[in-house]
Amino acid sequence: MSKELVIAVRSLQEMQYAIARVSAAIGKGLERAPVEVALRHQNGKRTLDQNRKLWPMLTDVSRQVQWLVNGSMDHLPPEDWKDILTAGLDSEQRVAPGIDGGFVMLGKRTSKMRKAEFAQLIELIYAFGSNHGVQWSEPALAVYEQYREAT
Rank of each mutant, 00 (worst) to 15 (best):
Q66S: 09
S130G: 12
Q42A: 02
P139E: 00
E138D: 15
P139R: 07
T86F: 13
I84V: 10
M15F: 01
Q64L: 06
D49S: 10
D83P: 02
A38M: 08
I84D: 00
Q64M: 08
S111Y: 15
G71D: 05
G133D: 15
W136E: 08
M105P: 11
N131Q: 08
F128T: 04
V22D: 12
E123R: 13
E145D: 13
M57P: 05
T86I: 10
A96C: 05
T47R: 11
D100E: 08
V134S: 07
Q135Y: 00
G98F: 14
Q42I: 00
R21K: 14
K53F: 14
A127P: 03
I125C: 04
W81Q: 14
L121W: 03
S72H: 13
A25K: 11
G133F: 13
I19Q: 04
G71Y: 07
H41T: 01
T59P: 03
I122M: 11
K115Y: 01
W67K: 15
R63T: 01
G129M: 15
T110F: 13
L54C: 07
G101H: 10
H132Q: 10
I84T: 09
N51K: 12
A119Y: 03
M105S: 14
Q13F: 05
Y147T: 08
H132W: 09
T86N: 07
D74C: 12
L54Y: 04
G88R: 12
K112R: 14
V104N: 02
A119H: 09
L89G: 01
G98V: 14
L121E: 09
E36G: 12
K108I: 05
V69M: 07
Q42C: 02
R114G: 04
V104G: 04
A140K: 07
S62Q: 00
S62W: 06
S72V: 13
K28C: 01
A127Q: 07
A33S: 05
Q66P: 02
V104L: 03
S11L: 06
S72T: 12
D90R: 13
S62G: 03
K53R: 12
D100G: 02
D80W: 00
T59L: 04
R114A: 04
K45E: 11
E149R: 15
R32Y: 10
L124G: 05
H132M: 07
G98D: 13
Q66F: 01
L76N: 03
A33E: 02
R148L: 14
Q42Y: 06
V143W: 08
L121N: 06
E79R: 11
S72F: 09
D100C: 03
D90N: 06
R32P: 00
V104D: 01
A87I: 04
T59A: 13
Q42M: 00
R114W: 05
G102K: 06
S23I: 01
F103P: 03
L48E: 13
G133L: 14
L85T: 05
E149N: 14
P34G: 00
V95L: 04
P77L: 12
G29K: 06
R32M: 02
T59V: 08
E79H: 07
R63Q: 09
